[in-house]
């Protein structure tokens, strides 16, 4: 589904990613772990198409197409979804209008009929249950006045509505208490199927107890220095990132 080959990325002339290789197949969950500043969020943002990142070398193909050639909205329409680390507030734009626009843009792109207000509200009610999102929230402006936990739940709620092929969860666990964490994880697991894939970007192993990855990759100083099964996450938790540094002679 996703293939990253020898990816080099800079921001404002500073090289952040230095030769990333990654293969993701449908049905898989990959965890990207690493200490602060290792380039995890950069990788997530490059996949989503954020502008200020400059790809200096390498390629990314998604469903057989060159991802780097696509505008961010095109990537989204083709099935790339990012759950933001810090979801932005858009004052005055009701969540429900925002979501209806997003869902109908997707339907238009696929050549499907746009949903009426009634149909959309029905769909929304269904998906809300998945993350137990407070019904009131969708009447508010986009992310405005949401608590940290509500913002993250809201991201997974959007994921449920848009049913992406590839989801990138950028530090979805940060700022969540254990109940919210379980709720979010439950949502992600429920959305899992053999056709889609997920990248979980996280600093801590905690989230991975609830969203169990097939593969764990450790990112350090812009490179994937270790890849293994889910046991790697526990090993990391136990030994800390210093262990990786020593093992790599850094």
């Amino acid at each position: 589904m996703l293939s990253i080959k020898n990816l080099y990325v800079s921001i404002e002339g500073k090289e952040i990613l230095k030769g990333i290789n990654l293969e993701i197949k449908p049905g898989e969950i990959h965890a990207i772990m690493g200490p602060n500043g290792s380039g995890k969020s950069t990788l997530a943002n490059v996949l989503a198409g954020k502008e200020e990142y400059e790809v200096t070398e390498g390629e990314i193909t998604f469903m057989g197409e060159d991802l780097l050639e696509m505008a961010p909205e095109e990537r989204a329409l083709k099935g790339v979804f990012m759950s933001f680390q810090y979801p932005v507030e858009i004052p005055g734009v009701p969540m429900v209008n925002f979501l209806k626009t997003a869902v109908n843009e997707l339907r238009k792109y696929r050549g499907e009929e746009e949903l009426t207000a009634g149909e959309f509200l029905k769909l929304m009610r269904e998906k809300k249950e998945l993350v137990e999102l407070d019904t009131q929230l969708t009447n508010r402006s986009v992310n405005e006045g949401f608590s940290g936990g509500e913002k993250k739940k809201n991201e997974i709620f959007q994921m449920a509505l848009l049913e992406p092929k590839l989801s990138i969860l950028d530090e979805t666990d940060s700022g969540l208490d254990i109940d919210a964490l379980k709720r979010v994880a439950h949502g992600v697991n429920a959305l899992r199927n053999p056709e889609n894939a997920t990248i979980v970007v996280t600093h801590y192993q905690r989230l991975l107890e609830y969203i169990v990855p097939d593969f764990v990759h450790v990112l350090y100083q812009g490179k994937i220095v270790k890849s293994s099964g889910k046991e790697l996450a526990f090993e990391l938790e136990e030994k800390g990132y210093d262990w990786i540094k020593q093992e790599n002679g850094l």
Binding site: G49, E73, F81, V88, I90, G92, N97
Partner: peptide, 21 residues
């Protein structure tokens, strides 16, 4: 960018943000 990431193009996004404002 947030709008773009949800499949909404920049033109529509600006219209939406301005109307919200």
């Amino acid at each position: 960018f947030y709008c773009n990431q949800r499949g909404i193009d920049t033109e529509k996004a600006i219209g939406m943000i301005v109307n919200g404002y």
